[in-house]
Amino acid sequence: MQVQDLEKIFQEKVDQEIKIEPRDWMPEAYRKTNLRQISQHAHSEVVGMLPEGNWITRAPSLKRKAILIAKVQDEGGHGLYLYSAAETLGMSREQMIDDLLSGKAKYSSIFNYPTLSWADMGAIGWLVDGAAILNQVMLCRTSYGPYSRAMVRICKEESFHQRQGFEALLVLSRGTAEQKAMCQDAINRWWWPSLMMFGPKDSESTNSDQSIKWKIKRKTNDELRQSFVDMIAFQVKVLGMTLPDPHLKWNEERQHYDFGEINWDEFWSVVKGNGPCNKQRLAARRKAHEEGAWVREAAMAYAEKKAAREKQKAA
């Protein structure tokens, strides 16, 4: 069969909402795009453990500590689901980890911002996980089967992350003047980076959108960003706090909130490695990987020894 025919069959399947599975024929660019997107998503989950892990020992109560540990553990699990999905596309786990540690592969820039106060844990849950959920709910319907299944599993666990964040801020928003100020400060610092999570504006895209045609993605960056702004602009009122954007205003005609321009120079600067914590995050990952090497080797040596012994016994 000719490549054009295979591509036609492939596109027909996608159009009919038939999921693509690992052993099905797929265009090389589809494989590559998925591989890049899923592995970056996996890296984001893993690096995402760092800013929050920073506060586990300093959580204000045992309850909050237990919640934070559970959330960070979930993120490790999400990383695993996603790495597994990416592996079905033909790249080894080691290769993906190597690419992360060498700085070749990217992860979500949001995790290159520091977590300065306890209120940041709330703001991350509410804003960062809130933004991630919009993207992830859409990805539950992505065309690549293993990615879609991983997303369904992740979404089931993720809503607790957003709710606990909002609730943590709610408690602060009803607290002392100092706690209120801390809450507002965290929102101020996390608002714009959260908006950047959706990526560049649609108008920055010069080509027709292949990802949408292949149903890897089903909504554009701007569409997702707008739903996020609408959702958060409403919820922030419940907290009695404000968002740091003087241009934020309900637009009766559009039935959406208008909002100000994102600082795109900052966006690209952080993507390119010059954010406040890029070096620190990668250094932490490298250290964990290197210092864990002996554990991985020992476990393998033990498993091999045990297998050899059993073989000997059987003989």
Binding site: Y107, P200, N207, Q210, S211, N221, V271
Partner: peptide, 19 residues
């Protein structure tokens, strides 16, 4: 097929400035 659109978690390599 060139994919030029960048999505969340999907920054193309030439723009990413990776080492």
């Amino acid at each position: 097929i060139q994919i030029r659109k960048f999505h969340y978690g999907d920054i193309p390599e030439e723009k990413a400035g990776g080492q």
